[in-house]
């Protein structure tokens, strides 16, 4: 009970920061608000117990993301960093909160957090936990799932990231060379 009070508060902060990004008039301020949004989001991850996700969110979202956005702004002319937004359409203003309420109602039917009788904990997890060492000879279960059972998935992900890197290198190279 008490745990959910704090997660509600942190989610409220996330919502406030996310909506504040739309209110400000210049890009630099929205970069800062986006940084604080990342801080809140990683606090939410830490509170839910996903410490590794929290760490990645803090490093990439709050640290690297802010610096990269600033470097981009550095090459932008000051007149381009002002924002003139048209007012949001009425259907979005009315429809999105309704959609959110529907999703919240549907979330009641999800199994409890860490429930031992939920379907993934009954069928899939015990199989991986029992057989992974015999199948792959890897002591870490997460590594064996990522690198062995889902090796093709990971391979294609790596290809996607590699392609993105090549595209960035082609776009950002010096014109003369």
């Amino acid at each position: 009970m008490m745990y959910s009070v704090n997660i509600a508060l942190l989610l409220l902060l996330v919502l406030t920061a996310a909506s504040a990004t739309f209110l400000v008039k210049e890009l630099m301020s929205s970069v800062f608000i986006l940084g604080s949004y990342s801080f809140f989001l990683s606090l939410v991850w830490a509170w839910l117990g996903a410490v590794d996700v929290a760490f990645v969110e803090a490093v990439i979202g709050a640290g690297l993301g802010t610096v990269l956005f600033l470097v981009t702004l550095f090459d932008t002319a000051p007149k381009d960093s002002r924002l003139r937004r048209p007012p949001p359409p009425l259907a979005g203003v009315l429809g999105l909160p309704l959609l959110g309420i529907l999703l919240l109602l549907a979330a009641n039917d999800l199994p409890q957090f860490g429930d031992p009788t939920s379907p993934p904990n009954v069928h899939i997890s015990p199989v991986y936990l029992q057989n992974s060492y015999a199948d792959t000879l890897t002591p870490n279960v997460v590594t064996s799932v990522l690198m062995d059972y889902r090796a093709f998935d990971t391979l294609i992900e790596t290809v996607v990231i590699f392609t993105a890197g090549i595209a960035c290198a082609l776009l950002l190279r010096e014109p003369g060379s």
Binding site: T16, A20, L23, S29, F32
Partner: peptide, 8 residues
């Protein structure tokens, strides 16, 4: 929340 007010 107070500091967030200052940021916005």
């Amino acid at each position: 929340l107070v500091y967030l007010y200052r940021v916005i």
